[in-house]
Design a protein around this nucleic acid. Structure first.
Lengths: 155, 155
DNA sequence: GGAAGTTTACTCGGATAGGTCATGTCCGAGTTGCATTGG
DNA sequence: CCAATGCAACTCGGACATGACCTATCCGAGTAAACTTCC
């Protein structure tokens, strides 16, 4: 199991945008700010737009900004925008295959194993949902957002 | 993020072995029981042996059995035997890269984002650790283990 | 000076390629129980 | 009848092929602001 590296990009880009309220920041700016491949980062930002986390505007002075207030964007929103919302464990019902296959009458309820994996995934999601972007930047010393604002605003 | 399909094999094979206490079951038997590729399944069972979940014996009438009582094998043990114990989110410290790189003095503590992802992973692990193989087979109607015993014991 | 047309800067989407890892197969080495053989 | 030897079944480990997905790059289409031009 592995989360895409681009998830880290998405999380940091979103928190960076949260530190520049009102402003609109382009892909190239964000790519330079974190030293990331511009074209591929663009794809990930598009995923965030598609998920309703960011909103993108075209044209000159265009770019991205948060689509919602920071307190209404959870870390889970970002994670599932990039990686998808599916359960990493996929039950293929092998209990119904092979020599030991159970009859369908015994399989009306969900397999105990799948239920266990589902519960764990829900615990993971709940933990991520309890953290918002506002929480993420709330702990930072005031000097950081100030510096980010200076570096990302185009005057 | 995706867990290997072979994890389902490992979970079902372990619970199957738990239903046949004392007996030793070969890879070929398990593969036939669930209709799985024998050679590749062998690799996964080897991982479970390496993790101390199963113990394998060579020679005729050899095969696998549980290395510990069912109540002392957690689902987490099996999952991490197959998939590894690492956090799926890997922090690469991009906050220290690019134009917006933070000075090392600001990065002595772990990044808030990484901490959040760590906590979620721990919640996931805790959930899986709270479930043992004994719990998994405890809920089954008595007819199932009986059937499994009949199918997997070689008389 | 103002309106229309042109240029520029940027996002969006698709096409494509390489790398990594899970999946799957095959084969040889080593080990152990069983059968056979010889005393 | 017993011990020693050979055979068979099985696990273990490595080598190798395939496919899916993440990473990465490039290019064209579309859009909106800014700039230029012309009346």
């Amino acid at each position: 199991m592995k989360l895409p590296e681009s998830l880290e990009w998405a999380l940091h880009c979103t928190t960076a945008l949260a530190q520049v309220p009102g402003e609109t920041v382009s892909t190239a700016q964000l790519a330079e700010h974190f030293d990331l491949p511009t074209a591929y980062l663009s794809k990930q930002l598009a995923l965030l737009v598609r998920a309703g986390v960011l909103s993108g505007t075209t044209g000159p002075r265009g770019g991205f900004r948060l689509a919602r207030p920071t307190s209404e964007i959870t870390v889970l929103d970002i994670v599932e925008a990039i990686d998808g919302a599916g359960n990493p464990y996929l039950c293929r019902e092998i209990r119904q295959q092979g020599r030991g296959a159970l009859p369908a009458s015994q399989c009306r309820e969900r397999c105990t194993i799948a239920t266990t994996m589902d519960r764990a995934h829900q615990a993971w999601r709940d933990s991520l949902r309890s953290m918002t972007v506002a929480d993420l930047i709330g702990d930072l010393p005031a000097s950081i957002p100030e510096r980010t604002r200076r570096l990302l605003s185009r005057g």
